[in-house]
């Protein structure tokens, strides 16, 4: 069994304040996990805004250099300063899907042209027919077809369709890993599950691993195999998704779970915020300096303080 992605003790801090200021903000502190080659999975990173989940994703994509630690892809370091050929091989294997498809696509460019340019850049395709076939194959796997998309501009597609086209664009170069940063938060309610179900079928049918970044615990529970929960840059709990979310151990994970609006009693709305958990998670955050992740069995790890 080989490791496809190895995030080894990665940290990132940004300078804050003016150019002469020495203050730094720790966006990610000591993230550490691996994704295996021959076991496609949906690996979910959960956190609120400011938890560092997008910074972590950008480091995995090689768009941001870690301050310390290293991200390795198939044993090769992922770096922002890779040479052309290495960079291209990496981009072919690891593809991003962004939050807002209307921003990801150039509004003045036809959707199919964008997919075609990805296809020609990363696949050794000869001739227009081969490119069309590759595009159609990718579009069919997300429930669209080339005939539906060809010649259309982004504004002519619905948000759900466009997000699927964005996923098709990523799939056209046959990647091993998709990094999807909040792929459903801009998509309408009735179309959201179509995207979520699609991510699931990518794993099951095409064998693509997905790093799914979200703030929504309910969809995370629905599709994830493994999950990590981040609080202000630190991973506070990780493990098999169902086990972690059924019985979270860390105060912050418990707070997140308690804050999910329940559907147990529609119309009877219990909105009391979990004050004790808010206090408990603020308390551990203040003591985060002397903390470490501790194994608690069943592949689960929880941050402990002391």
């Amino acid at each position: 069994m080989s490791t496809i992605l190895d995030v080894a003790n990665v940290s990132k801090s940004f300078p804050s304040g003016g150019i002469l200021s020495r203050n730094t903000v720790d966006a990610v502190v000591g993230a550490d996990f691996q994704i295996e080659e021959d076991r496609p999975e949906i690996f979910t990173i959960v956190g609120e805004s400011g938890s560092g989940k997008t910074t972590l994703a950008r480091m995995i994509l090689g768009l941001e250099a870690p301050s310390s630690g290293e991200v390795q892809f198939r044993g090769e370091p992922v770096s922002t300063s890779l040479g052309g050929r290495q960079r291209r091989a990496f981009m072919k294997a690891v593809q991003p899907v962004f939050q807002n498809p209307f921003e990801a696509f150039n509004p003045l460019k036809r959707v199919d042209r964008y997919i075609a340019s990805t296809a020609t850049a990363f696949r050794d395709l000869k001739g227009r027919k081969a490119v069309d076939e590759a595009m159609d194959e990718a579009l069919v796997s997300v429930g669209l077809s080339l005939a539906e998309v060809r010649g259309r501009f982004p504004h002519e597609l619905s948000g759900g369709q466009l997000q699927r086209a964005a996923i098709a664009r990523a799939l056209v170069c046959k990647p091993d890993l998709l990094v999807a940063d909040e792929p459903v938060s801009m998509v309408d309610a009735s179309l959201r599950m179509a995207i979520v179900n699609l991510l699931r079928s990518l794993r099951d049918d095409l064998g693509v691993s997905v790093i799914y970044i979200t703030h929504d615990l309910a969809t995370a529970y629905y599709i994830s195999d493994r999950i990590i929960i981040m609080q202000k840059g630190r991973v506070v709990e990780m493990g098999p998704a169902r086990a972690v979310l059924d019985d979270p151990q860390h105060p912050y994970s418990r707070l997140l779970k308690a804050s999910v609006l329940s559907l147990d009693n529609p119309g009877g709305g219990d909105l009391t915020p979990a004050r004790d958990l808010i206090a408990a998670s603020d308390d551990v955050l203040a003591r985060a300096g002397q903390s470490r992740l501790v194994d608690i069995g069943d592949g689960r790890r929880v941050r402990q303080y002391g």
Partner: peptide
């Protein structure tokens, strides 16, 4: 029906 819930897969 399309609302996922924790504890329900």
């Amino acid at each position: 029906a399309s609302l996922p819930m924790i504890g329900d897969t």
